[in-house]
């Protein structure tokens, strides 16, 4: 594992006018004595235990009977499925239009669900609405053009929703 130069990390922090100094901050966590001496053994024991577990089996049920039952069930399900779809297509000539509408409804619901989940998620955000709008207007986020990737967008979007900026407005800004 090649680590980055400590100096470059410190320089980066200095450029950000930060007082953080990784050389003076270990995080403060520690482990019980000899933890790392025993961990490989614990992992090894777990691997042996898991490897000894039998593969999936139903005790007492003869294999042939089980296979025959599964085949019968699959065939029956297949026949019922085919019959249902044949009948549906005959009765409904507008299946495609209905399907499109269903998908639109689904996405609408999904979007609302996401908004509500995101609302919770961004309660701890630190961005102000001005910062978000500034970043959206500029089309970049401190570095380059490749910043509107999934992760950063998600973060900006989440925080925007929290601050009450309409999602439609955000989407139109991104266009």
């Amino acid at each position: 594992m090649k680590k980055d130069n400590k100096e470059s990390i410190r320089k980066e922090l200095h450029e950000l006018q930060s007082s953080l100094d990784p050389s003076k901050d270990t995080g403060g966590f520690r482990v019980p004595d000899h933890f790392f001496d025993t961990l490989p053994g614990n992992i090894s024991n777990r691997l042996s235990t898991e490897n000894k577990k039998p593969a999936f089996a139903l005790p007492g049920l003869p294999t042939k009977r089980l296979v025959a039952s599964l085949v019968s069930i699959t065939l029956l399900a297949g026949i019922l499925f085919s019959l249902f779809y044949l009948q549906r297509d005959q009765l409904n000539g507008y299946a495609d239009a209905d399907y499109d509408q269903l998908m639109l409804d689904y996405y609408a619901i999904q979007f609302d669900m996401d908004r509500s989940a995101l609302y919770d998620f961004v309660l701890e955000s630190g961005l102000t609405p001005e910062e978000i709008l500034f970043e959206l207007d500029r089309g970049e986020f401190i570095f380059g053009d490749d910043v509107f990737d999934e992760m950063l967008l998600e973060e900006i979007f989440e925080q925007a929703v929290y601050y009450g900026i309409e999602s439609n407005y955000l989407l139109s800004s991104l266009d």
């Binding site: 401190i142 053009d145 490749d146 910043v147 990737d149 999934e150 992760m151 950063l152």
Partner: peptide, 10 residues
């Protein structure tokens, strides 16, 4: 699975 630019920004 993210770009370096986005990581720097984050």
């Amino acid at each position: 699975g993210t770009s370096t630019g986005a990581l720097k920004a984050s």
